[in-house]
């Protein structure tokens, strides 16, 4: 499963925001057909790392390779065109637009009349409604309703639905089960596994090591902008990994010194 060259390879990545060193010499590989849990406390650098992968941040130094090709320019458009779909926590939805308009933002289906592109409202409405309903959109909410009227869970369902609809090669999920009910949470987790089985790379960011340990093939732990652990879930239990998170880099250093 993890044979062959990595789909995404991050080498010695550093990122500064002004004087703040947000990512410190991070190197990590991600393979197609793999579900990787990216875990760590708040401020560990998880979201910053995936924002580099999805083109929102440009690293200060270091290299990122996608499918063996070095990434020269970072922009969400380029990442999306490469097939990297991201469900982010704080961004991704424009409150002033309808569900359907948000769903297709940036890749609106069009009907051309005399070569002029017009939005294909029927497709936008029907498809977005059908996909999002699976993830907990109320029956009385229509695709024409503005996103600002949705609950936290429903907002999340729009983002998840969109990632599923446009999945290509990579799906990055940043705390995807936040605001979701127990049943919806299970649905999202099943979906992550299903996407992996279809050969996609799934990067799943969470605080909950026990939850992601059940799903993931590998866990990457970050702390203070550094990668402090990268272990297969078959080699380390959730409790052991939790200990790493609790103790931080010290436990890894101790283990390395012993070996």
């Amino acid at each position: 499963m993890t044979n062959g060259h990595p789909l995404i390879q991050v080498k010695n990545l550093d990122l500064y925001f002004g004087a703040f060193h947000a990512l410190k010499n991070v190197s990590v590989d991600f393979h197609a057909g793999e579900l990787v849990g990216l875990v760590g406390d708040n401020g560990a650098g998880k979201t910053t790392l995936i924002r580099v992968l999805c083109g929102m941040h440009t690293p200060t130094s270091g290299e990122v390779y996608f499918d063996g090709q070095r990434v020269e320019k970072f922009h969400p458009k380029l990442a999306i065109d490469q097939g990297i779909e991201t469900i982010q926590q704080s961004v991704g939805l424009c409150d002033n637009l309808s569900i359907a308009r948000n769903f297709y933002l940036g890749r609106e289906p069009v009907r051309r009349i005399l070569g002029i592109p017009f939005l294909d409202f029927t497709t936008m409405r029907d498809k977005s409604t059908r996909v999002i309903r699976q993830f907990g959109l109320r029956d009385n909410v229509s695709a024409d309703d503005e996103v600002e009227r949705l609950s936290g869970g429903e907002r999340q369902s729009v983002k998840i639905g969109r990632a599923v609809e446009f999945r290509n090669r990579v799906v990055i999920m940043d705390e995807p089960t936040n605001h979701l009910s127990v049943r919806e949470r299970e649905h999202v987790n099943e979906l992550a596994v299903q996407l992996k089985k279809q050969g996609l790379l799934v990067i799943y960011i969470t605080h909950d090591i026990f939850q992601v340990h059940k799903l993931a093939d590998r866990i990457v732990i970050m702390e203070n902008g550094e990668k402090i652990e990268d272990a297969s879930t078959s080699k380390m239990t959730a409790e052991q990994l939790e200990e790493v998170i609790r103790q931080g880099g010290r436990v890894v250093e101790r283990r390395e010194a012993l070996s």
């Binding site: 922009h75 065109d81 961004v91």
Partner: peptide, 9 residues
């Protein structure tokens, strides 16, 4: 920020 994240220039 959201538009940017969806690939809008």
């Amino acid at each position: 920020a959201s538009a940017h994240s969806r690939g809008i220039r």
